[in-house]
């Protein structure tokens, strides 16, 4: 009933507004002839457009001022530095184009408003102008493509041989992380071996390389500062995406396909807390590919630490397949992160 009343009320208000607007239009048409009416409308609209432009430009500056401190801190990876630079270049180029075209658009609209006395200038084509604004954008695009492809080649190049290799596997709705252990080799796995109770990644028990592999189900990934890391990315069910906003990277996790991504973290978590003045700062892994109802809660975290801290942490971890019950106890197993968040 209340829905019905609301709808009826909205319709009623719209009816009244329409009647007033109609009446005012008829009244205006009776007061003045169509030419005068048209010219006064042109005047008003031209000024309103200028007002819109001026307020818009002020709004852009205002918006930037209140939001600029909410953006990300400087890139936490070497690869992200190239991104930051390229982003700045593109902002400057597009910003100039945006400003010039908008000044022209609103200035022309204002300056050439119909006043009744003027007539327009018959100007149908000019090949020199067309050539100018075909080539200039083409050259600018070529420069942006050149910078982009250089960075793209770098970021997608083969990881250095000394990179730490870590596997990250997405599932609805959390991340499972596997470290290769002492032998530095990730053992084989097969999705048919998966068992949520004791083999979450389907490790092949006959592969000796699996014996020392460490699996973390808390969604927390440990990385060593200034040491390249290569992520082996997979998915157990649907497509997910490993999004690392602080490192300016992301890559899809696709079932049936292994994707990779490598980068070099350069700021430790501890340092980042100081840099951002935020004691709660944490590197987060966001799922950036829609994966179902818990998509928004598929959160992982990254701890970037020194080699010593990393070694110490690693030593405290037990291999997944041969659990000497002692060391495993501190681990929090997050089975359903949706629940974890809604309970909060």
């Amino acid at each position: 009933m209340s829905v019905f009343i609301t709808v009826a009320l909205i319709v009623l208000v719209l009816m009244i507004v329409y009647q007033i607007a109609q009446a005012s239009e008829y009244a205006a048409s009776m007061r003045n002839d169509s030419k005068t009416r048209e010219q006064s409308t042109n005047q008003i609209m031209a000024w309103l457009l200028v007002g819109f432009f001026v307020m818009g430009m002020i709004g852009i500056v205002y918006c930037h001022n209140i939001l600029k401190d909410k953006l990300l801190p400087v890139s936490a990876s070497l690869q992200g530095e190239a991104y930051d630079f390229m982003f700045k270049v593109t902002i400057i180029v597009t910003g100039i184009v945006f400003f010039i075209t908008h000044v022209l658009l609103f200035w022309f609209a204002f300056k050439y408003k119909g006043t009744g006395s003027k007539s327009s200038f018959f100007f149908a084509h000019n090949n020199k102008l067309e050539l100018l604004w075909t080539t200039v954008p083409a050259i600018v695009m070529a420069i942006l493509v050149a910078i982009g492809l250089r960075n793209w080649m770098n970021v997608t190049s083969e990881a250095p041989a000394d990179a730490n290799v870590i596997e990250i596997v997405g599932k609805q709705f959390n991340w499972i992380i596997r470290y290769p252990g002492k032998d530095n080799v990730l053992g084989k796995r097969n999705y048919k071996n998966i068992n949520d109770a004791n083999n979450v990644l389907g490790l092949d028990k006959n592969d000796p390389a699996n014996a020392d592999d460490i699996i973390s189900q808390s969604g927390e990934m440990h990385l060593v500062v200034n040491k390249p890391v290569k992520l082996i990315i997979g998915s157990r069910d649907v497509i997910h995406d490993v999004g690392l906003p602080h490192f300016r990277l992301k890559m899809d996790a696709v079932p049936g396909i292994t994707t990779t991504m490598w980068f070099t973290p350069k700021v430790t978590s501890a340092q980042m807390k100081l840099n951002t003045n935020n004691p709660n700062f944490v590197y987060e892994i966001s799922c950036d590919q829609m994966c179902g109802k818990g998509h928004y809660s598929m959160r992982g975290t990254i701890i970037v630490e020194t080699q010593e801290e990393y070694d110490k942490w690693l030593a405290s971890q037990a291999a997944y397949l041969a659990p000497p019950a002692a060391a495993k106890s501190t681990e929090v197993v997050k089975t359903d992160s949706t629940k974890a968040i809604t309970m909060k």
Partner: peptide
Amino acid sequence: TLLIAVPSAVKVFNWLTTIWRGNIRF
């Protein structure tokens, strides 16, 4: 993809030149 910006830019500049020195009715 970035090539497609060129014909798009041509269109924008042509629209701007269309209203330039017009006798605009709003």
